[in-house]
């Protein structure tokens, strides 16, 4: 996931999309580290949202929408890592929201599943479901390819290389924070200068 651009169809949501709407609690019996349960989590992504078109079509495991545009406080509620994982497993690659709940943001970075992009202004009204859009991670912009409008995003800063690497552990290995391969004697994590948000 280290390309500079993310291009795909857009799914639009409002404010305070909480973790119960992202992945309802009845599906938390699925364990994300078990491959077929990871896929299954994807099939339920955002199925708890009220009055919205399905994010993942009935009977499918993947979403046609790589980009979610939302309002304030995306991912509020539970600490369940199943939430960013469900969206990522479904094929979602980025969320573009005015703000995030702290734990959800951190879980996006730690898992490397999703780029949680912040917007300085509200963009919910700038997109309709199904619009094609492109996020430029270097320039920190999102372009609505239907309307041609280019809108600024807040830079991801130190969080980006962690997500690019595929999450906290892979990042830590690549930067020498922990041993390059899994080893039973690994005990000590050494702080480095580039740090994860939060």
């Amino acid at each position: 996931m280290s390309a500079n651009t993310i291009r795909g169809k857009v799914y639009v949501l409002g404010d305070n999309i909480d973790t119960d709407q992202i992945i309802p609690a009845q599906y938390l019996n699925l364990v994300p580290t078990i491959p077929d349960e990871y896929e299954k989590l994807g099939s339920y992504a955002l199925c708890g949202v009220l009055d919205a078109a399905a994010y993942v079509p009935e009977g499918r495991t993947k979403t046609p929408y790589a980009i979610i545009v939302a309002g304030r406080n995306f991912g509020c509620g539970s600490s369940r890592e199943h939430a960013p994982i469900a969206i990522g497993a479904a094929g979602g690659r980025a969320v573009v929201a005015e703000s995030y709940a702290r734990i959800f943001f951190r879980n996006c970075v730690a898992t490397g599943e999703l780029y949680p992009m912040e917007t300085p202004t509200r963009l919910v009204g700038e997109f309709v479901v199904g619009d094609e859009a492109e996020i430029d991670l270097d320039a920190s912009t999102i372009t609505n390819l239907r309307s041609g409008a280019v809108m600024p995003l807040a830079p991801l800063g130190d969080a980006r290389p962690v997500i690019d690497a595929g999450g906290l552990f892979e990042y830590a290995r690549r930067t020498g924070m922990i041993a390059p391969t899994a080893h039973p004697d690994v005990r000590e994590a050494v702080p480095v200068n580039r740090v994860v948000e939060d």
Partner: peptide, 12 residues
Amino acid sequence: IGNTDAAFILGT
């Protein structure tokens, strides 16, 4: 915290 951070704590 999420599972990934918790796993990091378990190890370190």
